[in-house]
Structures are given as structure tokens and as C-alpha cells.
């Protein structure tokens, strides 16, 4: 019973947050329009947090995802402005994400630098590259093809199921697909199972014949692609690319994974719990904005909630 309560503590907190806003904002909060809006707002963070989960399963993490997202958006936008078609820009941006991720993985697993230090370094490298490639300016307007920015505005119409005038945005669908894919990879492939083993005990995994270096390299590559995808989604949504636009993603993504870890059996990251963590952060942000709480106060609240959830999980785990 206590055991159950421990795992569902964060979930209960989430429910309390929803009930609170539903009561404070009876007309606007629990409406289809608002929920769809939240799902679209959260789609970038969802992608980054889901792919961040892949490295965090191995007890690693990646601080460079935010600046990688900015860099990927810039790479695509620069290529668009040079007249390349949309698919070239997208592929190039994802390739940059993969290479950047591999570089992180190389530093961490082959060279053996702590992930904190390695990705702190690449954070500034990617950020600097984004500024360099864009000349420090925002790329917008005619440089961004309508086909690219149209993706974020379009969606599947929901008229047929009774929500006239609403559509499920492609951005949200993309995020759901990424979560489903990461879930499948982590929970249902031997690759994912090996990552959890590395997280459980890296030395033991190595001696049990797991190719630790190769898998860590791959995992960082996937996180890099995720960050690049989020950067593209962001650029599409705002129809522009700016060398700092991804910078908020990293801290929120890590916070979401930590929130998710308070819900799992052994405190290990699970992508579906990460998704709940993302939703928690997103709902809080959306609700607090609607009841006109100062954005600085919002930041304080988010920090307090993350610390509270992890503290409660840690204390109750110690007691059980």
C-alpha cells in the first residue's frame, strides 16, 4: 500500500494540479481547444525529453540538447535561404543532430569524459556554431518556405468526431510518434534492455559481454537526432530560426525525466513516465499563464515542484 502510494505520489500531485486549474478556470481550462493547444506547445519538449530518457537510462545525460535544437533549426533555415528544397534542409538538420550526438557519445564513451563536462562543452560549441552560421540574426520571412512552416499550422481535422473547427496538429502527432518509438525501443528491443543493464551496473554489463562503448555512442546519437527534430519543429512553428530558440528545452527535459523517475519501480527512467512529467510541467505552465501568474513566479514554482516530487520519492524510498 505504502509502496503503491510512493510510486503514485507524483501522479496524485499531477491530478491535484489539474483539479485546481479546472476549478479556477472552469470555462477555459478543460476544453478541447486548450488541451490541443497544450499538446502543441509541449510537442518540442516531449521529443527532447523522450530522447533524453534514452541516455538517462544509462545514468548519463546530455546538456547540449537545447543548443543542438537551435543549431538544427539554423542549419535548415540557412539551407532554405540558399534555395535548397525542404527535404534537404530537414535531412541536413537531422544529420547534424546525429553527428553532434555521436560527438557527445564519442567524448563520453570512447574518450571517457564525464557526461556533465563533455556535454557542457558541446553545449557552447553547438551554440557558437548556430550563431556563426546565422551571423547572429534571426532567419525569417521569405527565407522560410511555406511548405516548411505550413507543417506546424496544419493538422488532422477533428470535425468528424464532434470538435468542429479544431484539428489535431501534426506537431502533436509527431511528438506522440516519437514517444511511441522510444517506448518501443527502450522496452521491447534487446538494445533497450542492454541500455537498462548499463544503467544498472556499467562494469558488470561490460564483463557480461555488452558492448558498452558502442551502445553509449548510439544512444547519444539518438538523443542528438531528437534534439535536432525538436529544433526543426520549433522553427516550423514560429516560421523562423534563431540561434537561441532551443535554449529553454534542456532544463525542462531533464526535469521531466526526473519527475518521471519518481514514478517508476526502482527509480529508473521510463519514457511513458517522462511523458507524464512533460505533461505536468506543460499543464502547470499553461494554467499559471491563464490565471496571470508572473512568469518569474512560474519558474520558481516549477523548480519547487520538481524538488518536492523528487524529495518525497527519495524520503519515502528510504523509509520503506
Amino acid at each position: 500500500m505504502i509502496e503503491k502510494l510512493r510510486h503514485s505520489g507524483t501522479l496524485l500531485g499531477f491530478a491535484a494540479i489539474i483539479i485546481f486549474f479546472a476549478l479556477r478556470l472552469p470555462d477555459t481550462f478543460l476544453t478541447a481547444r486548450n488541451l490541443i493547444n497544450i499538446s502543441q506547445q509541449l510537442s518540442m519538449l516531449t521529443v527532447v525529453a523522450a530522447t533524453m530518457t534514452i541516455v538517462m537510462v544509462m545514468n548519463d545525460f546530455d546538456l547540449s540538447v537545447g543548443s543542438m535544437a537551435s543549431l538544427a533549426g539554423i542549419v535548415a533555415a540557412v539551407l532554405f535561404s540558399m534555395g535548397y528544397p525542404v527535404w534537404v534542409g530537414i535531412l541536413a538538420a537531422l544529420a547534424v543532430g546525429l553527428l553532434g550526438g555521436f560527438f557527445n557519445g564519442f567524448l563520453v564513451s570512447v574518450v571517457g569524459i564525464l557526461p556533465f563536462v563533455a556535454t557542457l562543452g558541446t553545449l557552447t560549441i553547438f551554440s557558437g556554431m548556430a550563431f556563426l552560421a546565422s551571423g547572429g540574426k534571426t532567419i525569417y520571412g521569405r527565407d522560410i518556405p511555406a511548405g516548411f512552416s505550413g507543417f506546424a499550422r496544419a493538422g488532422i481535422p477533428l470535425d468528424s468526431i464532434g470538435f468542429s473547427g479544431l484539428k489535431l496538429p501534426y506537431l502533436s502527432i509527431t511528438a506522440i510518434c516519437v514517444v511511441a518509438l522510444v517506448w518501443f525501443v527502450l522496452e521491447h528491443t534487446t538494445f533497450g534492455r542492454r541500455l537498462y543493464a548499463i544503467g544498472g551496473n556499467m562494469e558488470a554489463a561490460h564483463l557480461a559481454g555488452i558492448r558498452v562503448k558502442k551502445l553509449r555512442l548510439l544512444a547519444f546519437g539518438l538523443t542528438g537526432i531528437g534534439a535536432a527534430a525538436a529544433g526543426l519543429m520549433y522553427a516550423s512553428r514560429v516560421a523562423s530560426a534563431n540561434p537561441t530558440q532551443g535554449s529553454g528545452l534542456m532544463l525542462d527535459a531533464i526535469a521531466a525525466v526526473f519527475l518521471g523517475m519518481t514514478m517508476s519501480q526502482q527509480g529508473e527512467p521510463r519514457v511513458l513516465f517522462t511523458l507524464i512529467g512533460v505533461l505536468m510541467l506543460g499543464v502547470l505552465d499553461n494554467g499559471l499563464t491563464q490565471i496571470k501568474v508572473d512568469s518569474y513566479v512560474r519558474e520558481i514554482l516549477v523548480g519547487v515542484i520538481v524538488i518536492l516530487a523528487v524529495a518525497i520519492a527519495t524520503i519515502s524510498k528510504r523509509k520503506s
Binding site: Y196, A197, G200, N201, E203, A204, L207, A208, Q266
Partner: peptide, 16 residues
């Protein structure tokens, strides 16, 4: 230190 993943199940540890 070198053999077990203590946080994982008996099954996972055996088949790893």
C-alpha cells in the same frame, strides 16, 4: 560491483 545489476530482475540478470 562486477556481476549483478541489483536494480534489475533475476530474469534480466540471467539473460543479459
Amino acid at each position: 560491483g562486477e556481476a549483478l545489476m541489483l536494480s534489475l530482475s533475476i530474469r534480466s540478470n540471467i539473460v543479459l
